[in-house]
């Protein structure tokens, strides 16, 4: 008799634990869905172009550095390049030191705001790297074999 009562209590505790976890999971999921706009670290060029962000409003822009778009402005210190998601493009100007991984075809995240001409004036540029890790020789071999698939090539 006392044995079965103990078992009932254990079952009741188990129900409470799992029901509690399930409800907690649902509420956290709802909260995360509601705050999705604040959790994303950056916006892509398509979102920027479609949503029409006000000039002067700070946000982070993320995407790939477009091939053959990197250059210097006439002052000789401001870097100019285009960030693309292969759908929309945003022109970016950045006065400062670019990270080592910055190169054409590379993913980057820039913090700044649009000016009145729709150019993104960045105050900080971070490089993103992707999930692929391999030695340089493997990349060379894949390029020779024509099986090299990378954002750099897809951007063209």
């Amino acid at each position: 008799m006392s044995m079965s009562r103990a078992r009932t209590r254990k079952r009741a505790r188990m129900t409470v634990v799992f029901a509690g976890l399930a409800m907690l999971g649902v509420s956290v999921a709802l909260a995360l869905l509601a705050f999705e706009d604040n959790i994303v670290f950056f916006y892509g060029p398509t979102e920027i172009v479609e949503q029409g962000v006000e000039p002067g409003q700070n946000f982070r822009l993320g995407g790939l550095v477009k091939e053959d778009s990197v250059g210097l402005a006439n002052d000789g210190v401001t870097n100019l390049f285009i960030v693309t998601d292969n759908n929309a493009n945003v022109e970016v100007a950045f006065k400062g030191i670019l990270p080592d991984l910055f190169r054409e075809g590379q993913g980057i995240v820039a913090l700044g705001a649009l000016n009145n001409e729709g150019r993104f004036i960045a105050s900080e540029v971070l490089a993103k790297h992707d999930e692929n890790y391999m030695p340089p020789e493997a990349v060379e071999a894949m390029k020779r074999a024509g099986t090299w698939k990378h954002t750099q090539e897809e951007g063209n």
Partner: peptide, 13 residues
Amino acid sequence: WWNTLHQPASIIR
């Protein structure tokens, strides 16, 4: 789920 600076998973995918 979200845009992050951290790259996506490399092992368990």
